[in-house]
């Protein structure tokens, strides 16, 4: 079973600028994992990268090693170790600049309790996505990448 949390935010900066920052794992992952920890592991010949990324949620650490794939306006990753999950980050046009959308899918084992845990996980993941998106927006509008 799997559950997906999806959140979006409008960033008032040109879409190309937003896409460039958003698809850079070195910028995005620290922002998304601002409430946890992250570490760059290595780069493969095909351009994909491996990162360790964990969110600290109460007494547990959700995440693991992920394989990151980037494109012009998107960044995706899937777990290769740890919590089974995947992430899609997309940048699209908006009249005020750009929209960044993040969708995180988490797979947890179990039947009834697994369902309950997934419900909980969707809320937690959603709040982390909002926090990450707000960090990204602020970074782009007021930080080093700002006007």
């Amino acid at each position: 079973m799997a559950t997906t949390a999806t959140e979006s935010i409008v960033v008032r900066r040109p879409v190309d600028v937003v896409a460039k920052v958003t698809t850079d794992p070195g910028v995005l992952l620290p922002l998304v994992a601002g409430l946890g920890r992250f570490a760059f592991i290595g780069r493969h010949e095909d351009g994909t990268e491996e990162w360790d990324m964990f969110l600290d949620i109460g007494a547990i650490h959700v995440g693991g090693r992920v394989l990151v794939v980037t494109a012009e306006r998107s960044l995706t990753w899937r777990s290769v170790r740890g919590t089974r999950h995947s992430m899609v980050v997309e940048v699209t046009d908006h009249p005020d600049g750009a929209v960044v959308t993040m969708a995180m899918t988490v797979q947890l084992g179990g039947l009834v309790l697994g369902r309950a845990a997934e419900l909980l996980a969707r809320g937690i993941a959603g709040r982390h996505l909002v926090a990450g998106l707000e960090q990204l927006r602020h970074h782009l509008e007021f930080g080093p990448a700002g006007p």
Binding site: L35, G123, E134
Partner: peptide, 13 residues
């Protein structure tokens, strides 16, 4: 807003 969202993300329920 950035700080509030980060604080909100610390909630489990």
């Amino acid at each position: 807003q950035v700080a509030l969202s980060s604080l909100g993300a610390r909630s489990i329920l």
